[in-house]
Nucleic acid binder design. Structure first.
Lengths: 191, 191
DNA sequence: ACCTGAACACCGTTCAAGT
DNA sequence: ACCTGAACACCGTTCAAGT
């Protein structure tokens, strides 16, 4: 809130890259992605807009970093559990995390997929589970893509439903997700 | 290209809503969604930016209209074919159309789903095929959502691959889509 | 290295005209 | 009804300073 702007060109504001990212996530959570602008972010941090560019190369990198942070919230699978059960838990966790950050999903889908470290970890974990389920590498690669598309893509449709009556007949989105996930797992791992 | 701008306040430019939409689709196809701005669109039409608002309420409505136009390109299913084969053809057509307009996919996924007339037609056609496959209504509703998420969501990942070597080992995206679609259809309709 | 001041090159949209 | 002129309230980003 306090903007002050009582700083002369030489003085520092004690800004950190982590502080910028944290503030951006806060704006995203409270006001949505429409309000996440470099200028509003700077104002919230009590700083001039261009000051952000000392800690972040630009808005795209900022969004990519937040996205990877969010991917870090996904629950890591156990190394010894049943692969099928672990795959179900992992993809459900991906879906839940994506649903908690719906504004980020379109940015994720706009071809800036799993480039960050947490994204790569997620990718490796999924591949490991599919390998433990004794899938050949090429089929595992296809299955990983199919599962990722499904879990993230479904979150984009899982927004708070339109302002109709309380229950409009259709089952809750999370149940539809679970149903479809079982179909996919049956196809991938066999009945 | 010609901007002229040699019109006085009273003169008309012969603009139509359809002409605006067509120009917008042309910009989208040649320059991408980043370049699709009201101002650039106006310039291409030889008109001042605010002139567009006589034919379109705003940019959001313009994108929604284009999106629904694009959905009209989806091949309509036959009324007498095998439901499973028709579902496969329909969802593949949805996927192909979405892939031809990758810039629109994030906008589609950003909760502006199937509100237009062509979107509703598509929705009805899918439900009819699922009913003909003798699915109960609630299961058909779940299946329709799952299929839509899968077909559209997959298109977001099917962009031209990064500039790696020609074949980087992974199978083409369209094959992965087909594989996953079979898994889903098996789960929905039974083996 | 980190910040300000000032500026550049843009946006979408509105509103009062003119014919 | 359809368009222009002018303006409003914004954007992301760069660049030359200052300490």
């Amino acid at each position: 809130m306090r903007v002050d702007s009582r700083r002369s060109p030489g003085q520092r504001a004690g800004l950190t890259r982590d502080a910028v990212l944290a503030a951006a996530r806060a704006v995203l959570a409270t006001d949505g992605i429409q309000c996440l602008t470099m200028r509003k972010l700077a104002e919230r941090l009590g700083v001039r807009p261009n000051a952000l560019y000392s800690h972040v190369t630009g808005k795209t990198e900022l969004l990519d970093a937040i996205l990877d942070d969010v991917l870090g919230e996904v629950a890591t699978p156990a190394h010894d559990g049943d692969p099928r059960a672990e795959l179900r838990r992992l993809m459900t966790s991906v879906h839940d995390v994506a649903r908690e950050h719906p504004d980020l999903v379109p940015h994720y889908l706009a071809k800036r997929g799993l480039r960050g470290p947490n994204g790569r970890k997620l990718r490796a974990a999924t591949e490991q589970l599919l390998a433990r389920a004794s899938l050949p590498p090429d089929k595992a690669s296809e299955a990983r893509r199919v599962l990722a598309v499904y879990a993230i893509g479904f979150a984009a449709f899982s927004e708070t439903p339109p302002s109709g009556p309380v229950g409009d007949g259709a089952p809750p989105m999370r149940d539809s997700f679970a149903t479809g996930l079982e179909w996919l797992l049956a196809g991938i791992l066999g009945e």
